[in-house]
Simulated scan of single mutants.
Amino acid sequence: MKSPSLFGSYAMRGWLFLSAMLFTQFSVSLNAQQISHKRNFSKQDIVAWCIVPFDSKNRGPVERANMLNEIGITKLAYDWRDNNIPTFDQELDALKQHHILLQAFWLTSGVNPSGEKGVEEVFKFLARRKVKTQIWYLFFPPAGFDSLPQKQKLGIAVSAVSYIAKRADSLGCTVGLYNHEGWFGEPENELAIIEMLKMANVGIVYNFNHAQDQIERFPKFYPKLLPHLMAINLAGLKKGDQHIYPIGQGDSESGMIEIVWKSSYKGPIGIINENTHPDAEVGLKMNMSGLKAILESIGDKTAAASF
């Protein structure tokens, strides 16, 4: 017969084991609930992108902010063109008045960004208005770039990105390398640039609308992008087709979105109007509708219900 003290010891161990099991089950259940409620795919977290030059109504700053308010989008990535430079201040003022966050500012350059007017205009504006935001940056390689050895390509690109990143860092801004076809649009090359730069304010903005040739590779390289991802812009994709479709009208974006949804990514999610519809408002609504259907199909009922 076991002594009372030994029996008590076994009873205590059993109680501790049962408690641990119950706590584990509770934690798993709680984590599952958190996964379905902590996603960044809800309407209030969506970023509008490609709605300035891609808009048949040619909305001005106030009209654009009003439109975003009306459809419930609270973040804008600003894809300006030269004709928009005089209205940078009006754009920011309108966004502030309508409680819309300036999530990002578009910027491009060639090999010598320090000598480009557009680059200087953007940095002067950001400094003057004390704007801290993401800079979505696209590098345009020079003629003959494709024939150069990889090491030389990296050196040229790193030099340009370094200038942009240092200027941005002095203002408290971050820089996202923007995939847009060609050498600079390949994730492996962007990762190599980041590795060479070793600057904390440089990351990646990944765009489905320029991923037509990367669909099959996406599950493989996405985990490598994840530590550096600053934003993801969604679009409809069809294998073997370079056209940009509304979200939900392709044959590949649903699976790619699910990969992102299941990952640890918690950053901005953009929807675009590049070639979606002449009217930016209609294009954004089409993409929100398509995203809602995909979210329902992958089980994020909470985010889907926000649209």
Rank of each mutant, 00 (worst) to 15 (best):
Q134M: 15
K96G: 04
W106D: 03
A94G: 04
V111D: 11
L154A: 12
I100W: 06
V111W: 00
H98Y: 08
L107R: 01
N112S: 14
R129P: 02
E91R: 03
H98D: 05
H98P: 03
A168L: 09
W136Q: 07
Y137E: 01
Q134H: 09
K153A: 12
F139T: 01
Y163K: 04
F139N: 02
L107K: 03
Q103P: 03
K132A: 13
S159G: 09
G144L: 07
Y163R: 09
L101M: 12
Q103G: 05
F105Q: 06
P142V: 06
D82W: 08
L92N: 04
N83R: 13
D89K: 14
F140W: 13
V122W: 01
T87Y: 05
P86M: 10
E121R: 09
Q150E: 15
Q150I: 13
T108M: 09
Q150N: 15
E91N: 11
K151T: 15
A160P: 00
Q97L: 13
G118L: 07
I156P: 00
Q134D: 11
I164S: 04
V122M: 10
K130M: 13
D169Q: 15
L138G: 05
E91L: 10
F88T: 00
Q103F: 05
D146W: 07
Q152A: 13
E91P: 00
P149M: 13
F139E: 00
L102R: 06
A94V: 05
W136A: 04
K153N: 11
V111Q: 11
V161E: 04
K124S: 15
V119Y: 00
A143W: 04
G118P: 00
P141M: 07
E121I: 01
K130I: 09
F145Y: 13
F139L: 06
